[in-house]
C-alpha cells in the first residue's frame, strides 16, 4: 500500500492509494452528522466500493475504491472533492429539512392530496344521495350470523331453538359439495 496526499486537501484528512485506485477521507464526526456521511457515501456506490470505518473516537474514515481499479491521481482527487462537496450538501440539507419540515410536509401533502382527489374515482354516494337510496331490497344471506349483534348471536337459547339448530344442515365449504 502506497498512500499519497491529495492536492488541495489537508494531509490529515485525505490520502490516495494509486495502486488500489482508492481514496480515503477522514471526517470529523462532531462536524458532520452520521446520516450525512451515509447519504454522501451512498451516492458513490454505483462507481466505487465504499467502506466506512471508525479509526478513532470522534472520526469516521470513508474509503472510496474505484470499481474499475485503475483511477489516476486526478480522478481520485475529483472523487475526493465530489465526496467532500456532497457531504457538505447532505449535512446542510439535513439542517434545512429540519427547519423547513412544516413547509415541506404541507406542500407534499397538498401535492399528493391534489393528485389523488376523489373526483377521479368512481362516484361514491354523498349524504344527499342517501335520501334517494333504495333500502327496500331483501337482506343478504347471513348463515354465519356476521351481521347479527352479539346479544342476538349468543343469547341463551330456548330448548325449542336448540333442537331446531341441531337439525339444521352444517355450513360446508363449496369445495366439499
Amino acid at each position: 500500500m502506497s498512500t499519497q496526499t491529495l492536492d488541495g486537501f489537508p494531509k490529515s484528512v485525505a490520502a490516495s492509494d494509486l495502486a488500489d485506485g482508492s481514496v480515503t477521507l477522514t471526517v470529523d464526526a462532531g462536524l458532520y452528522p452520521l446520516e450525512a456521511v451515509y447519504g454522501a457515501a451512498y451516492i458513490f456506490i454505483d462507481r466505487c466500493f465504499v467502506l466506512l470505518d471508525r479509526p478513532a473516537a470522534g472520526s469516521i474514515a470513508v474509503t472510496l475504491a474505484d470499481k474499475k481499479g485503475a483511477a489516476d491521481g486526478d480522478a481520485l482527487r475529483r472523487l475526493a472533492g465530489e465526496f467532500a462537496n456532497e457531504l457538505l450538501t447532505q449535512a446542510w440539507r439535513q439542517k434545512i429539512v429540519e427547519e423547513n419540515r412544516v413547509v415541506l410536509e404541507l406542500v407534499t401533502t397538498q401535492a399528493l392530496a391534489g393528485a389523488t382527489a376523489r373526483a377521479a374515482a368512481p362516484a361514491e354516494p354523498s349524504l344527499d344521495d342517501l335520501a334517494s337510496f333504495d333500502f327496500t331490497e331483501e337482506a343478504f344471506d347471513d348463515p354465519l350470523g356476521i351481521a347479527m349483534s352479539w346479544e342476538e348471536k349468543y343469547k341463551k337459547k330456548t330448548p325449542v331453538e336448540a333442537a331446531s339448530e341441531a337439525a339444521a344442515p352444517a355450513v360446508v365449504a363449496p369445495e366439499a359439495k
Binding site: I96, T108, T116
Partner: peptide
C-alpha cells in the same frame, strides 16, 4: 400516486429543502 417514488420526487424537488 401513493407510490413512495412519487412522494420522494415531490420532497426531493422542493426547493425549500435544497441547499
Amino acid at each position: 400516486m401513493a407510490h413512495p417514488t412519487v412522494r420522494a420526487l415531490v420532497l426531493g424537488s422542493n426547493l425549500n429543502g435544497r441547499p
